[in-house]
């Protein structure tokens, strides 16, 4: 029996040709798969609940503390007080939970070896990356919205108990933008996490890179001689991005709000672009 001999039983030959779906139909299929993946591990729900708890809880705590020492605040502090941004301060800690979850969206697939099932099912690897980003961005935006609105209203209710300063109303200029901006910030940060997870593949390494970029790098840049420190620091992700969830300009040296947010988005886009290039090149 020669190895070149084929179709010993012809029955299956008729059904070998499976037509390709349209790219859009495939993308919808992969989106659904990534949605199922995200919600079928317990850590997702817990991380997101923790994110909400941090933003709401910490915001309330900050506001209560500010009310408690309202009498001791100097006039300058009172004049520049941004009640909206203040009630959303929990984002500075919660961003780590969202970023780490973003890293895990990709790195956990490498850690468990499941990435081979994923790319076996969808050989168009960049489509998988796009679907992961889309699903995670929508989820973190929705979670961010819930958390930021809750933190804002609870925070303002607490701040309103002091007569020393004004609390914000949702209809005030820039306030709605800042509250929604908090959700946008978290959503883009999650995408940055996925990008870092794709580039580095290892959970620990990608989390270290994320923490380094957000928290360590600003400290190091601060040690540079003036004016380098302020010139560079305003382009770092956290410094560029956080104006979007404040209503007051943070410092005279900062980038303008939307330029800063664009710089912040550029970090996420750059990490995803590098990740996409590496995905196509590397063996899974």
């Amino acid at each position: 029996m020669s190895s070149a001999e084929t179709a010993l039983v012809p029955t299956a030959a008729a059904r070998t040709a499976v037509p390709n779906p349209t790219p859009m139909r495939q993308f919808v299929a992969v989106l659904r798969a990534e949605w199922t993946k995200l919600w079928s591990v317990r850590s997702t729900l817990w991380s997101l609940l923790v994110t909400i708890a941090i933003i709401v809880g910490l915001g309330a705590l900050f506001c209560a503390a500010r009310v408690a020492r309202a009498d001791r605040l100097d006039p300058g502090e009172l004049r520049n007080f941004d009640p909206t941004g203040f009630s959303l301060n929990g984002i500075f800690l919660a961003q780590l939970a969202v970023g780490v979850l973003g890293v895990l969206v990709m790195s956990s697939e490498y850690a468990t070896g499941q990435i081979r099932a994923t790319f076996g099912a969808t050989p168009q690897r960049n489509l998988v990356l796009a679907a992961k980003v889309a699903v995670f961005a929508v989820v973190t935006f929705a979670v961010g919205l819930v958390a930021c609105f809750a933190a804002f209203f609870i925070g303002q209710a607490i701040l309103g108990r002091s007569t020393k300063f004004h609390s914000a109303f949702i209809g005030d200029p820039g306030v709605l933008r800042a509250v929604i901006g908090g959700a946008m910030y978290l959503s883009v940060l999650g995408a940055l996490g996925i990008g870092l997870g794709t580039i580095l593949r290892r959970t620990a390494g990608a989390i270290a890179a994320l923490v380094g970029l957000l928290l360590i790098l600003p400290i190091l840049v601060n040690f540079l001689p003036s004016p380098w420190n302020t010139d560079i620091s305003k382009y770092l992700p956290l410094q560029a991005g956080n104006a979007v969830f404040h209503t007051a300009k943070l410092a005279s040296t900062d980038l303008s709000l939307w330029v800063g947010f664009a710089v912040f988005c550029a970090y996420a886009v750059a990490s995803l672009a590098l990740g996409a290039v590496l995905l196509a090149r590397r063996d899974a």
């Binding site: 659904r32 591990v41 697939e109 468990t112 099932a117």
Partner: peptide, 26 residues
């Protein structure tokens, strides 16, 4: 294809593992 049996996310159920695979390929 069956390549590595243990290459599955350990906290996902068997059914959910097959569900996402099915969804990804319509």
């Amino acid at each position: 294809a069956l390549l590595e049996a243990k290459a599955i996310h350990p906290s996902r159920t068997a059914r959910n593992h097959l569900r996402w695979l099915a969804q990804s390929n319509g």
